[in-house]
């Protein structure tokens, strides 16, 4: 159990899924991210469907991100659950010039909330900010929506490499926090003390604090 590894233990392993309609730029986002700090260590680093990346966390721990791309076409929609089960985070990508793709994100959010509850870190990503003049979803609308569903909102441009690294950094951070609070819960369960509930509440508050900060920061960054 968690108590077995103190502090800087082995690499943390995270799974994140990319969801979103076809052609909103899921693949480009990943490619852009991988391209920047490119390292060939996996048999299919060349492919964009599944990528994995090692990152160093601020606290010296190492984490491995496994990013699962999904097919966005409607006929594949029903297959969603087999991709996102067991995932720690989800990037819900839409195209800011495309109202439909935003609706699709909403339907993914509903589904994820229903299936995974709060176990999964959600980030809504408005991609293609380079097409600002064709924008169909205003920043505020998306942000408000994200806040109502407890998700983060980030805007990016995969084409101009704007906000991509920040996006994945945020994702990593959120998943680490999730992981941390989960571990905290586990540890509490093991302590067999009556102070469990106190600790748990504290941890939750802490996380919320971070969460808000996260939204703020990502907004300003763009």
């Amino acid at each position: 159990m968690s108590s077995r590894r103190p502090g800087a233990g082995p690499t943390l392993n995270f799974k994140a899924v990319l969801l979103g309609e076809g052609c909103v730029g899921k693949t480009s986002l990943v490619l852009r991210y991988m391209e920047d700090r490119f390292n060939t260590q996996h048999l299919s680093t060349l492919q964009a469907s599944f990528v994995t990346k090692k990152v160093m966390l601020p606290d010296e721990r190492r984490a491995q991100l496994n990013i699962w791309d999904t097919a966005g076409q409607e006929r594949f929609h029903a297959l969603g659950p087999i991709y996102y089960r067991g995932s720690d985070g989800a990037l819900l990508v839409y195209d800011i010039t495309d109202q439909d793709s935003f609706q699709k994100v909403k339907s993914w959010v509903r589904e994820l909330k229903q299936m995974r509850g709060s176990e999964i870190a959600l980030i809504i990503v408005g991609n293609k900010t380079d097409l600002e003049d064709q924008r169909a979803i205003s920043y505020e609308t998306a942000l408000r929506y994200a806040q109502t569903v407890g998700a983060h909102y980030v805007e990016t441009s995969a084409k101009e490499n704007d906000g991509v690294n920040e996006l994945f950094e945020l994702l990593t951070r959120l998943m680490v926090e999730h992981h941390g609070s989960k571990q905290q819960n586990d540890t509490n369960a093991l302590r067999l003390q009556n102070s469990i509930s106190d600790d748990g509440v504290e941890a939750d508050q802490d996380e919320n604090g971070h969460t808000n900060a996260g939204v703020q920061r990502s907004c300003c960054g763009i």
């Binding site: 899921k26 693949t27 490619l31 060349l46 097919a71 594949f76």
Partner: peptide, 22 residues
């Protein structure tokens, strides 16, 4: 990996899940 290689994308780079799954 053979499938990836056979899809004719110049560097195999562009094949995201949208294209790979079909």
């Amino acid at each position: 990996s053979t499938v990836f290689d056979a899809t004719g994308c110049p560097r195999g780079q562009q094949l995201g899940a949208d294209d790979f799954l079909p």
